[in-house]
Design a protein around this nucleic acid. Structure first.
Lengths: 353, 353
DNA sequence: CTGAAAGCGCTAACAT
DNA sequence: ATGTTAGCGCTTTCAG
């Protein structure tokens, strides 16, 4: 806490910094008791309209604003929930966050969210900081694979729901997309369009969804009796340079892949760029991406995707959380949301003759 | 505060809900005084390593987590800042939010953000709720045009910075893009490429940036000695249907516009769609959009934009805020960030011969 | 190096 | 309808 706003504030208010009025001050100003002010501030019944008016005037005159820290300390509940995700600026997660915010708002709760930047330690710090602020509940997109650090918090009553990826080493509610089946469907679609050499480029293998989507890819290939050598699979994260290198490798050599499956929206966007750059030189490469994204339908060719609904994931997770906060005590649930194959063109490009 | 997690939590912890251990409990368990626990928890000096170890063991055994509400109540500062913006899921605002989060993190502060959904009343509710939680500072993308409601808060020492749009009826720090000049540059670019009938489609006129960009459009037209009749200007918000209708109107009739200027990224995306739909039937219409967006360079034609840097806006605002929190007391500043014309193709389409 | 006491601003419980 | 008292869990102050 290195910040003291004294000087700046003094300038703005003529030196009255720290003069935050309290209910006691309001009570004195209005000539009433403390509890009466509390009643007015909280809209409780049992205050005559005349008294209420006097209190309201005092509140306005003094610029009083209730101190919620004191309130929380006394009441034990904060009417706020926390959301820890990978990156608030990722177009997959920002609608998820917004959906959670709307549900929270409908329940009169404030949402506090933080980005883990895919760093397990940062996820932990954030989640525990939120617990220290006594959020009523927590929604987490895991970066970590071990959530035992949350056990004391859960034991103390912090409702916890995991979304997009399952929790590690604890039993808790979770809301997931059906990654494996989605990927299998996408890859099967490519196979149906004649492809036999298909590459998979996905996120780090430590990420559950990356592993699941790879599994779907492998199953689809195996089901069709196709080989899937290691050189056709790259799980190295979403760094564009890395994705470019992997794609270049798979597209080179005597037996290049004729189609690519992208493990998430970041990879898809990079692959769209890569394929656009080589479009003029070679036979077009087919592409199916996991996750839908804005403008996918306006690219050339339009991009076929396995779509998830991130807002729906957020809504489901938030609703599950508030069910818990309202007292639901059935065993932890695993909610799986289906994906949807959206064919637009890039996934229907045939292999070279 | 309708939520009691009792039942759900009881299930998870065997009925020990509410047994959140306090420092007092830890002190008893470790056989030391309360203040010693406080010292250990806060990493203060003056505790023997033996005592410290005993306290740490008690903390772990009991699952103690400091209650920050009590801490805040006592200390007065929360080490958190608030950000109120239009929509966390908008690709323009989510990087802004993320940038603020990173600066806050570097200063040891937590960011709490909320979406106003462009509703002035909701902006006010959110900002005041954050003040009630005693955030140290506030960054606001205004939806309202009157921020006098913040006067008591600012007087009480809440540092406040406005970003993307100026505050209404109060004097405060602000960080803005140079909307008028950016728009003028974009429209002048279209004029330089031979266009004389150019339409402007932007956001609601109650939004400052929409008015400023319209002003830039008008100035560019006037500077070139071109007329800009009302029928070539539409400020009706970003609803796609509305934008479509406005575009259809401007593109119809005997003297249709040959180029369009889009007031923000939402409008641009809709216009890209509209123009793609009519591309086969007519001479291509030129397009320049305010705000850059992902994949703009991969559309056909690639979209020329007047780019702002939302992350940089967020960083500037956050740095200004922390300067205030660190005591800077110079008069409120108005920081203006330049825009950048990025030519990609759609803005260089010539008018029909 | 350690601890006891006071109190931050509010609400719950109990008067009146 | 209104007021009084106690205490939420922590940090500050001051004493050992």
């Amino acid at each position: 806490m290195p910040h003291t706003a004294r000087t700046a504030a003094s300038r703005q208010n003529g030196g009255r910094y720290g003069t935050r009025p309290t209910m006691k001050d309001v009570a004195a100003q209005a000539g009433v008791g403390l509890k009466t002010v509390s009643r007015v501030v909280n809209g409780e019944a049992g205050v005559s309209s005349d008294t209420e008016r006097r209190v309201q005037e005092a509140i306005t005159a003094l610029g009083f604003r209730r101190n919620d820290s004191a309130r929380v300390l006394r009441k034990g509940s904060t009417a706020s929930i926390g959301l820890v995700l990978e990156d608030l600026a990722d177009p997959f997660y920002s609608p998820l966050s917004r959906a959670v915010e709307e549900i929270a708002r409908a329940h009169g709760a404030l949402l506090i969210n933080g980005s883990s930047a895919e760093d397990p330690e940062r996820e932990r710090e954030l989640a525990l900081a939120l617990c220290a602020r006594r959020v009523d509940g927590l929604i987490i997109v895991p970066a970590s694979d071990d959530h035992r650090y949350l056990e004391p918090e859960i034991a103390a009553g912090v409702a916890t729901v995991f979304v997009d990826r399952p929790p590690g080493r604890i039993d808790a509610d979770m809301v997931l997309s059906d990654s494996a089946n989605g990927a299998r469907e996408g890859v099967t679609h490519l196979i149906a369009h004649g492809h036999r050499r298909i590459g998979f480029i996905g996120d780090h293998p430590r990420i559950h969804t990356a592993r699941e989507r790879l599994r779907g890819y492998r199953e689809a290939m195996a089901d069709a009796g196709l080989p899937s050598p290691d050189s056709w699979m790259a799980l190295g994260g979403t760094d564009p340079e890395r994705v470019r290198a992997d794609a270049a490798r798979m597209l080179a050599g005597p037996e290049p892949v004729t189609a690519l499956f992208a493990g998430n929206n970041r990879v898809t966007v990079t692959l769209v760029r890569v394929l656009a750059e080589i479009a003029e030189r070679e036979h077009p490469v087919a592409l199916v991406g996991f996750d839908d994204f804005e403008l996918a339908d306006l690219l050339s060719p339009p991009v076929t995707v396995v779509a998830q609904d991130p807002a729906e994931l957020g809504r489901s997770a938030a609703e599950l959380l508030f069910r818990r906060l309202d007292g639901a005590d059935d065993p932890p649930r695993r909610v799986t949301r289906p994906t949807r194959l959206v064919t637009r063109g890039s996934g229907e490009v045939p292999p070279p003759a």
